[in-house]
Simulated scan of single mutants.
Amino acid sequence: MKIFYYVHTGHRVGLDRFRRACTIIRALVDVDITLLCSDFRIAHQARDFGVKNSVGIDDVRNIPKIANHGDKIIFDSDEANSFMLEDMRKYFSTFIRISDDKNDKKADGEFLISPYLSGENICNTVIVDEKYFKEEEKTIKLSFFFGDDDYEKDLEKHLEFIDGLTPHLQLGFYYFFDYEDMLKKRFKNHHEFEEYDATVKKSQILISASPQAVLESLASGAKPVYVQREDYTTDFLELFESLNIPIVKNYDKAYLIDIINSINNHNYFKMEHNCEKVAIFIKNSLNL
């Protein structure tokens, strides 16, 4: 019997769920888990994130080609409809699902991890790696991370949103080569994909459309600002409001500037250290 972790990744969905998955797998250091990614490119680099075993499977429907009936799985994706999820609950002996939807409900035959829900067989938590809670000197005054994906080159369309702010730019994973070259010329101070952790931890203020990056920035003691992308889920808005994280919609530059100018007087709520809590919940759910 094997344990798998499926995570939705790709050039149109980014790596937020992937970063969360790697955090959980690292927390379960003594558990043998195979990470299943929905694209091959990041699966090949998962070892750089502390994941020993990873496989690219191209599509969520290919999971049964890797896993056998009776295996166990952690599932982090919103691709599956209710019928597919029910089939998975029957196919796997243990089915642990991660959800960001405040209107979600735990189904029979599954365990659930959620920042909104609580109850029996539910772990109410926000997942951020412990490494972001370690104090580090904030040597970057302002940085901007649009996300790991930008297939439609939306950042380029909205460059005026941060024009004049001169932030450090953190580049994403799924950027086209010519697009990345353009951005490097546009931003004197830019950071490669591999520098992501350092950028997040060293930034005093992080402007980002990546929910996971915003949470990691908050954990590091910084002052993050969340930008709601038009093509991204709004599931995190209520969570960020509860943490008192400023939210910018419709690329409202005037509002962004107001936030930055008054940010030293803005009181953020502190993130909790929850890696151990998640690890214990998953191990108990897996009967380990």
Rank of each mutant, 00 (worst) to 15 (best):
F40D: 09
I42M: 07
H44F: 11
H44G: 06
Q45D: 15
A46C: 10
A46K: 02
R47W: 11
D48R: 06
F49W: 14
F49N: 08
G50S: 11
K52I: 06
N53L: 01
S54G: 06
I57V: 08
I57N: 07
D58C: 09
D59H: 13
D59R: 09
D59F: 12
V60H: 15
V60Q: 14
V60T: 11
V60M: 13
R61L: 15
N62D: 14
I63Y: 10
K65Y: 14
K65D: 15
I66H: 01
I66N: 01
N68F: 15
G70D: 05
D71H: 02
F75D: 06
F75I: 07
D76H: 07
S77P: 04
D78R: 05
E79R: 11
E79I: 06
E79K: 10
A80Y: 10
S82Y: 07
F83R: 12
F83W: 10
M84K: 02
M84P: 00
M84H: 03
M84A: 12
E86C: 14
E86A: 14
E86P: 03
D87T: 00
R89A: 14
K90L: 15
Y91L: 12
F92M: 07
T94D: 04
F95D: 03
F95S: 03
I96K: 00
R97W: 03
I98M: 08
I98H: 04
S99D: 13
S99N: 05
D100M: 02
D101W: 04
K102P: 09
K102H: 09
N103E: 15
N103T: 00
D104Q: 06
D104C: 00
D104T: 01
K105W: 03
K106N: 02
A107Y: 06
A107Q: 08
D108S: 08
D108L: 13
E110T: 04
I113D: 01
Y116P: 04
Y116A: 04
L117E: 03
S118T: 01
I122M: 05
I122K: 00
I122T: 01
T125A: 10
T125S: 09
V126M: 11
I127D: 13
I127E: 14
I127H: 14
V128L: 11
D129R: 02
F133H: 09
E136Q: 10
E137Q: 13
E137K: 11
K138L: 04
T139W: 11
T139P: 03
T139A: 06
K141V: 00
L142R: 15
L142D: 15
S143G: 08
S143K: 06
F144L: 09
F145L: 12
F145Q: 08
F145H: 11
D148R: 04
D148T: 03
D149P: 05
D149C: 02
D150G: 01
Y151T: 15
E152T: 09
K153N: 08
E156F: 03
L159W: 13
L159V: 07
